[in-house]
Design a protein around this nucleic acid. Structure first.
Lengths: 117, 117
DNA sequence: AACTAATATAGATGTTTGTCTATGTATAAG
DNA sequence: CTTATACATAGACAAACATCTATATTAGTT
């Protein structure tokens, strides 16, 4: 799996305020000023958070006159859940399979989830 | 949902090395020295990372002689996926429902996913 | 008892990050 | 054209964080 992208997403989510923004957007699109009303921090701080969320591919923005409308990316929601499953599942893509000295691989502990081999 | 706990988990995961540790442990339990072999950082650094993962409830440790065996918590894996689903779904627990001025609530955009009301 | 191996703790350090104030830019309204 | 509104950018700063070296602790071994 693509660690870099997944870590960037996790970092973007790992802030209580940005998490709240994601939660807000999960109800539907919102413009910056509507989001800002839910917080105590300044407008530039929100601007910064929205940029972090956009850079991580979590949120996309659409400009409409003076307003910026933010929407949760459908692709993020599906791929994040998929990557999480991939991470927490012992499968062929497990990192230890590329390591000949891995105790779990050599001891056969992974065999149960690797029956096709 | 419990933001505090979820954010703590996200913060613990939002580091490339700790993410790799989680991936390693998803194949089965490992002791500290086995984990350390996969990295270039020092032993105290690993000790620090393992503590972060334990404090977040992601990993639990069992001492066996000189060795510390680390295991991915089953409870973390299930609750993390559940919380993620909860976050990314517009449902009754959506944060905006506690806010009378929320544009999405007042405009009825959420109605589709809230048919029982 | 002395030694070695596995891990933890303490303290220092450079980097990242969340936040702020001040200011710039773009769009609409009067 | 001036003014107000919505948002972005620049730069500063304190707190959090990842890492290191040095040292302590714990448990086997000789």
């Amino acid at each position: 799996m693509d660690y870099q992208n997944y870590v960037q997403i996790l970092k973007a989510m790992a802030d209580p305020n940005r998490l709240k923004i994601i939660d807000l957007l999960s109800c539907g699109s919102l413009c910056a000023c509507d989001i800002l009303e839910h917080f105590n921090f300044s407008q530039p701080t929100l601007s910064h958070h929205m940029k972090v969320l956009q850079n991580a591919g979590i949120v996309s923005a659409r400009k409409d006159g003076k307003w910026q409308h933010y929407t949760l990316n459908e692709e993020f929601m599906t791929s994040f859940k998929k990557d999480t499953d991939l991470l927490l599942t012992s499968d062929d893509q497990c990192i230890c399979h590329s390591d000949a000295d891995c105790p779990n691989c050599s001891s056969g502990k992974v065999a149960i989830t690797n029956e096709k081999n």
